[in-house]
């Protein structure tokens, strides 16, 4: 464990908690893409199956359980409890265009052709593009609530910190995982446009609105 991976995990946890609290306290999921949240639940489910087979540390196990629990709770709040506030008309990204290619690629490019490894690879590739429905929805509505931009900021920051973690581990431990690194770079690049808007607008107290 290094400081970059730890702050990355805490940033990820912060994003997940911010979103869950935003929906729970405002009793509304307006502006939130339910499709992205379903994809994140798929990412955690396919990646953390090793909860059943391997014990790495209390930290590792507890964080995985928290991530899975919060992501399913968020999906439940969006599609069940606060379904009336779900903005389905703007959450129209065709997720099959993400899941099918990602599924195919995880069979073609992986470290080991075993079920657990292919599912892990699928989750890595899927996480790289899982935010697209949310970014697409914001481009359609033309704006995002400030709390949603903070959620996106911490979510994007977490994988950017992981990139630094991988540089650190390569240098100090000789460890690297090309699949995770390439997917992580793609994932972080997808946030660049948002990061620019977040820094130039939201951090200056303005609302995040796109066409302007």
């Amino acid at each position: 464990m290094n400081i970059f991976r730890l702050t990355g995990d805490l940033s990820h946890l912060a994003a997940i908690i911010i979103l869950l609290l935003k929906i729970w306290k405002s009793r509304s999921c307006a502006g939130i893409s339910g499709k992205s949240q379903i994809l994140f639940a798929m990412v955690f489910t396919t990646r953390y199956l090793d909860l059943l087979t391997a014990y790495i540390s209390l930290y590792n196990t507890s964080m995985k359980i928290i991530y899975i629990g919060c992501s399913y709770a968020t999906v439940y709040l969006i599609y069940a409890k606060f379904k009336a506030t779900y903005d389905g008309n703007h959450d129209t990204f065709r997720v099959e265009f993400l899941v099918v290619p990602v599924g195919g690629l995880s069979f073609l490019v992986n470290h080991d052709f075993s079920p657990l490894e292919i599912l892990w690879t699928f989750s890595i590739y899927l996480e790289a593009v899982a935010i697209l429905p949310q970014l697409f929805m914001i481009s359609k509505t033309g704006e995002a609530e400030t709390i949603t931009t903070h959620y996106l900021f911490f979510l994007g920051l977490y994988r950017a910190l992981y990139l630094i973690n991988w540089v650190w581990r390569f240098y100090f431990e000789g460890f690297f995982d090309m699949i995770a690194i390439v997917a992580g770079v793609v994932q972080t690049i997808l946030y660049c446009d948002f990061f620019y808007l977040y820094v130039t607008k939201v951090l200056k107290g303005k609302k995040l609105s796109l066409p302007a």
Binding site: R5, D9, H12, D50, A54, I56, S57, N60, M63, K64, Y67, H111, D112, W120, Y162, N165, F170, E173, G174, F175, F176, D177, M178, A180
Partner: peptide, 10 residues
């Protein structure tokens, strides 16, 4: 460098 396969990252 060796590519350790133990998945210890989240």
């Amino acid at each position: 460098p060796v590519k350790k396969k133990r998945k210890d990252e989240l």
